[in-house]
């Protein structure tokens, strides 16, 4: 998650926003939106909801800009707000989308170029759907640690700070979440391990031949 905004520019944007220039804030929205989007989609499990969350996030950030004291990067600050917004129970209750709908709303990247083997595509699609479903099936608190760890690659300490929970809790939650995913993705996990073993065997065989 490499997000760097030139600090001079960041200061300017912040100052302009504080001076009540919504246009300056627009620049900030453009910069941050794309970077925040993947995390928020994964946290909420739904693209439409993610856009909702991001809108609210930016409005909240604008309202509270005075409270931003510059100890952290502006992006970090907005990221925090976005994550908290995404995990807010209110939105969850409002949403009536089912896990099936989550798949429908998957994402556009599915359309990006694939290899030519259509059966490989099929398997991959099936697997992606399974992963999305599994993530959607997790309790939001569990999904949160998984997303922040597996996708945003935050450390336990960072996750702890972000969610306001002790590091020990991050660790146990993450582990429980992975165990649950392991069950939910049982067949795929078995495939993956099998594949890995074959690869290892092939590598061994190759080594033997060389000897």
């Amino acid at each position: 998650m490499v997000v760097r905004l030139d600090s001079e520019e960041e200061r300017e944007i912040t100052a302009a926003c504080r001076a009540g220039q919504p246009d300056a804030f627009g620049a900030l929205v453009r910069r941050f939106q794309d970077r925040l989007y993947p995390t928020i989609v994964r946290l909420t499990g739904c693209p439409a909801e993610a856009l909702d969350v991001l809108q609210d996030t930016f409005l909240k950030a604008f309202e509270k800009l005075d409270a931003f004291q510059g100890e952290s990067r502006l992006y970090t600050w907005v990221y925090r707000i976005a994550v908290n917004q995404a995990l807010s129970g209110r939105r969850k209750r409002r949403s009536t989308r089912s896990a099936e709908n989550l798949d429908g709303g998957a994402d556009d990247s599915r359309l990006t170029a694939r290899e030519d083997d259509p059966s490989a595509d099929l398997v991959r699609d099936e697997r992606e759907t399974a992963v999305r479903r599994a993530l959607a099936a997790l309790a939001p608190e569990h999904r949160a640690v998984v997303v922040l760890k597996e996708y945003d690659d935050l450390s336990y300490e960072e996750i702890s700070g972000l969610l306001g929970i002790p590091i020990g809790t991050v660790r146990s939650r993450l582990h429980r979440a992975r165990l649950e995913l392991k069950e939910l993705l049982r067949d795929w996990v078995a495939d993956e391990i099998e594949e890995e073993r074959h690869a290892a065997t092939r590598a061994d065989a190759a080594r033997m031949r060389r000897l």
């Binding site: 794309d34 989609v41 993610a50 992606e128 998984v146």
Partner: peptide
């Protein structure tokens, strides 16, 4: 690994 294969969503 399986999780990591999920493509990055974009909008």
């Amino acid at each position: 690994w399986i999780l990591a294969e999920l493509p990055t969503p974009s909008s």
